[in-house]
Write a protein that binds this DNA or RNA. Sequence first.
DNA 1: ATTATTTGTCCCACGTGTGCCAATAAAAAC
DNA 2: GTTTTTATTGGCACACGTGGGACAAATAAT
Lengths: 375, 375
Amino acid sequence: MAHVGQIMQTRDEKRPCTESGLRTMTELQQRLVPELIDVLTRRYTILRTISLLMPVGRRVLAKEMGTTERKLRSEVEFLREQGLIATSSVGMVLTSEGQQLVEELHGYMHEVHDLSTAELMLARCLDLEGVIAVPGDSDSSELVQKDMGRAAAHYLKSILAEGMVLAVSGGTTLAAVASTLVPANFNGQLTVVPARGGMGEDLSKQAGSIAAKIAAKLNANYRLLHLPDSLGEKAAAVVAEEPEIREVLEVARSASILLLGIGAAQAMARRRHLRPDQLALLEHVGAVGETFGYYFNRQGEIVYVTPSTGLKLEHIKRVGHVIAVAGGSSKAEAMLAVLSYDFPATTLVTDEGALLEMLKLIERRGGPLATRRDD
Amino acid sequence: MAHVGQIMQTRDEKRPCTESGLRTMTELQQRLVPELIDVLTRRYTILRTISLLMPVGRRVLAKEMGTTERKLRSEVEFLREQGLIATSSVGMVLTSEGQQLVEELHGYMHEVHDLSTAELMLARCLDLEGVIAVPGDSDSSELVQKDMGRAAAHYLKSILAEGMVLAVSGGTTLAAVASTLVPANFNGQLTVVPARGGMGEDLSKQAGSIAAKIAAKLNANYRLLHLPDSLGEKAAAVVAEEPEIREVLEVARSASILLLGIGAAQAMARRRHLRPDQLALLEHVGAVGETFGYYFNRQGEIVYVTPSTGLKLEHIKRVGHVIAVAGGSSKAEAMLAVLSYDFPATTLVTDEGALLEMLKLIERRGGPLATRRDD
DNA sequence: ATTATTTGTCCCACGTGTGCCAATAAAAAC
DNA sequence: GTTTTTATTGGCACACGTGGGACAAATAAT
């Protein structure tokens, strides 16, 4: 999951604002040459592991690092050419130069590594398949949300395949995903559907519009639910019997990938123009997080459901992969609530602000696996 | 020549000691992922060029940057995926994000560019084929000399081919080249000869030992001149008639590559135990630089020749390629003197200290092409 | 002496990068 | 207003380099 994961900066100790101020060189590099930063961390990790285990052979080193021996070989050859390690028949050892380099690099590597360790930690805590975080905080800068959107779009594209059905929810975050998505050609062998009917005021942030936009960029089919999101229960039941609607719902229920945004419960309820008594109810049951009409409390339990047309939670259970996209430290609590629910294989795309805030919340509650840093 | 060229650090403005102190992140990166800087500068240059010419198409951009259109396309595709540039039918433009990134990057890029521009400048001033500089100063740290040795060894290997004859001189610097050379297999299709007979006290720094060491590492043949370097003129003439010696000299004179170290005249003369009157003579004629027995004054003129067996200057003229290796700011004057002489295609491998010092000396003398920085 | 390490080599296949060419749209000329 | 020209982007086939797997040689430990 470090493929897209980006780095944060801690070099200046007290960490000046990441967004509006100047980004650090490492951040810029991460943006301009991400693949080489991966190479850098890989080689550093190799050196570091050797320094701990030396003398050590390629075999055990590969096993230790979770890579193949052949892959390691190329790197080892390079490192030897650089005079950083020496090989003998008992294994590989660091040369004095290598040792010195590892020590010097140690401090700098936190710039690169901190976010990815945090990603791993959160993935373990919430039992997520993967966490991808971009540096910055969406709360303070719009650029970060865009960046997050691009990271999500990139990841989405990497797991999409022909014949799949993609269901999307709404929100500004997912709108960013759609707009940063790089066009590709799926030859119509892909269907995009909204997970819900229309919602609220802004058309461009509705699930339907987002589905259409994504479909256009990927040259995919799309089906829309031309319905208001919040119908009365009776009305919803009636409408759901309409053949056209039924068909779209059928397709949506067979979705293999679900792309969803997460919102703070209060803000979401307000945006949906819920009645005061409903707001009070949400408050009463402790709803903090919301996603496509479902409200969750801090324990990840569903405490309220907006009567609506669209995917139901029981269908989500059958979805192969869930991609949750949300960021901003202010949303951390909501995200934590929603993600505590037991979704299928979930990948979270977020930002540094939300990531660190979530970890902070987990630690404060004495959450499971709240291990401390390992250096 | 930027392939091996490495970077110096100027970020902390007043530039603390590069060697003994902590190296900068960029230096370490350069060591661990050498191509990183190249890719980074390439992409940065693309962005910068677009920002100046936009909207611009790939064709003119490729011509402007001196690369092929297809090569550019890969980069352009990447930059578009990163959301830094946008393509339309009128050409490519920077997005607002791209524009911001270019501006932020601008300051940092000097870290990367300064050494390579300095390399280019020196190459122009001295009419060298190439200059490769490693960061640091050999005067202050032994590590730098090793690094320089590795850079030279790497470059040497890149131009070696089967059937060639390699002539080497002596000195600590070339000893470092030999010891950092990464073994390769030339199947005996390569011959290494010393450019001169033995010299001075330390066996490991003699041309013969170095030739033998290099030959061993490359699985090449080697021939030695089992002679003291400084014979009397008469004795030299006599010995040169010996069949065995003649044969080796024949081989040496057909050398296609010459690897030579450069020394400061005074230190060299002292190490060779010249007589006081000889020392006085050197002083009198203004000898400052020395290489394999030839002493040069500041103008690059030969002012003294050690009577000796080995290659003569007239043979050097026929050598295809000269690789000069020397570093340390204290040697700058000597290097400048020797390199001012009109050798055949010469590549200089040096370090930051010597490089900058040489440029300073050139500027002080109002040397040709002493242009100032272009920003 | 044997076993379990290690490094280094070889061949094959897959993927990425490269060079060439087609399609298209804006602009300029008529 | 129509046509021609000149720019642009995008697609496609091929080759080269890198990764995968198995194997051989060599050395320390049992």
